[in-house]
Deep mutational scan, measured.
Amino acid sequence: HNLTITQGKLFFHYNPKLCLSEIHKMEEVSGTKGRQERNDIALKTNGDQASCENELLKFSYIRTSFDKILLRWEPYWPPDFRDLLGFMLFYKEAPYQNVTEFDGQDACGSNSWTVVDIDPPLRSNDPKSQNHPGWLMRGLKPWTQYAIFVKTLVTFSDERRTYGAKSDIIYVQTDATNPSVPLDPISVSNSSSQIILKWKPPSDPNGNITHYLVFWERQAEDSELFELDYCLKGLKLPSRTWSPPFESEDSQKHNQSEYEDSAGECCSCPKTDSQILKELEESSFRKTFEDYLHNVVFVPRKTSSGTGAEDPRPSRKRRSLGDVGNVTVAVPTVAAFPNTSSTSVPTSPEEHRPFEKVVNKESLVISGLRHFTGYRIELQACNQDTPEERCSVAAYVSARTMPEAKADDIVGPVTHEIFENNVVHLMWQEPKEPNGLIVLYEVSYRRYGDEELHLCVSRKHFALERGCRLRGLSPGNYSVRIRATSLAGNGSWTEPTYFYVTDYLDVPSNIA
């Protein structure tokens, strides 16, 4: 807008934040220059609390790290170098490059900038070799853009010569660093050979998330399962459950009422301010606690030095998902009996873990797994792929695949051998790939016309006998059925096997 004052003059007093240069501009645009008398524009009460600059400061050096910015700028000295009290560095987070010096300023003089007072450097006698002032900004957020400017702080001049310097606002972004852990990993099994893994992005990506790394490792069953005799009275049979499938998407929606109208769909109840505040506090606490764990609990591995020492970490090797089922080394339970199943799973520490690289999504279907087997899954978020990966501390989750139908069934015939004193040795093959492992066998036998009897055969007993022995049988026709019990439950009964026990007292003698 054009402003013209045809008559009258300007009068400025007691404006401590208004620089004289701005008042002189007002004289020019209003056409009143030359009308004012000496005392109409006070030299001592206008701009006496402001830094009124008329020179431009330029930054000469900028260096960044993930949490620091090192700045240096060209030296500046007023005509009387004693008038320079120091520099004021202003900075704040700036997602967009549209910041002005006066953003967030209120009537009390406060604003949204963080201000650092910096002492002037030592003055050199040689004007050509003056030290460049600077400042190291610490405690910054990774991968965050900051708006920065600097200006001088000078003393009051009796001659009211307006001098000083100020830089333009520059924008500097800190470097990326390792992201925080992925949030809320959930693993479920939808079949006997697959596990579905879902997660949420890290709360602090500290860069642009480029991919996720998912490692999985087959877990050995508890050692007590191999040692305890679950045929003993009072000892509860062990059981394991597989990871249940995901709930429906509708039930997972946030901010939804727990109660549904019987007449149909209901609208979600909005969260109160107290609920939102509580969630923010919980989120802040979780982030602080995660940072504490990362800094205190997890110790970084030592990389190899120039002395030739090897990095103890196993090298990563990509495998196809079809090879995942046989990740671990199978060892027989008892070496003397080769027909026992290889369900003991000690994992070799030198073995390469299978892994998958996930790009542009937060889910993965891990296939080719062994049925009813526990897996430990390790999830890392990465925001750099080359020249070397920059990934987060791992988040861990466990899951067990679903049982395989008929995996616990005894394959092959049940054979028998009759000894003296009416002892019958029953023999059968253990299931080759049971659900988890076989903890015991149930032997059901009966003599024709009598009630059915049951015998429990422990895992250890089966390994020693290759089956079991029935003792003290009365003469007669017998039928026997056997079924295995694994961590997933009972298998199917075998087809009945028949044998006849004679009275050993009636056996004919070869003595003449």
Rank of each mutant, 00 (worst) to 15 (best):
S203Y: 15
P205F: 10
G207M: 01
N208D: 15
N208V: 07
T210N: 11
T210A: 03
L213Q: 10
F215R: 07
Q219L: 11
A220T: 09
D222R: 13
S223H: 07
S223I: 08
E224P: 12
D229I: 11
C231A: 01
G234Q: 06
G234I: 14
K236N: 05
S239N: 04
W242Y: 05
P244T: 09
F246K: 07
E247H: 08
Q256N: 11
Q256I: 09
S257D: 07
S257V: 12
S262V: 10
A263E: 06
C267Q: 01
S268W: 04
P270K: 12
I276N: 07
R286F: 02
R286Q: 02
K287E: 02
E290K: 01
N295M: 13
P300V: 10
T303I: 15
G306P: 08
T307M: 07
A309V: 11
S315N: 10
L321D: 02
G322Y: 07
D323Q: 15
V327H: 09
P332Q: 06
A335I: 12
A335K: 13
A336E: 14
P338N: 04
N339R: 09
S341R: 10
S342E: 06
T343E: 06
V345S: 11
V345D: 07
P346L: 06
E351I: 04
H352Q: 10
P354V: 06
F355R: 07
K357W: 03
V359R: 13
V359Y: 09
V359L: 09
E362F: 05
V365Q: 06
G368V: 10
Y375G: 02
I377N: 01
E378K: 07
C382L: 00
N383T: 05
E388D: 06
E389T: 09
A395D: 09
Y396I: 02
R400D: 01
M402Q: 08
P403G: 01
E404G: 10
K406E: 10
D409Q: 09
I410V: 13
P413G: 13
V414Y: 02
T415W: 01
E417A: 15
I418F: 13
F419P: 01
N421V: 13
V423P: 02
M427P: 01
P431H: 03
L455P: 01
C456G: 01
V457I: 10
R459P: 05
A463M: 09
E465T: 11
E465H: 12
G476C: 00
G476R: 01
N477K: 12
N477T: 06
V480Q: 05
R481K: 14
R481E: 15
R483G: 02
T485F: 07
S486P: 01
G489V: 04
G491A: 09
E495Q: 09
T497V: 14
Y504W: 11
V507Y: 04
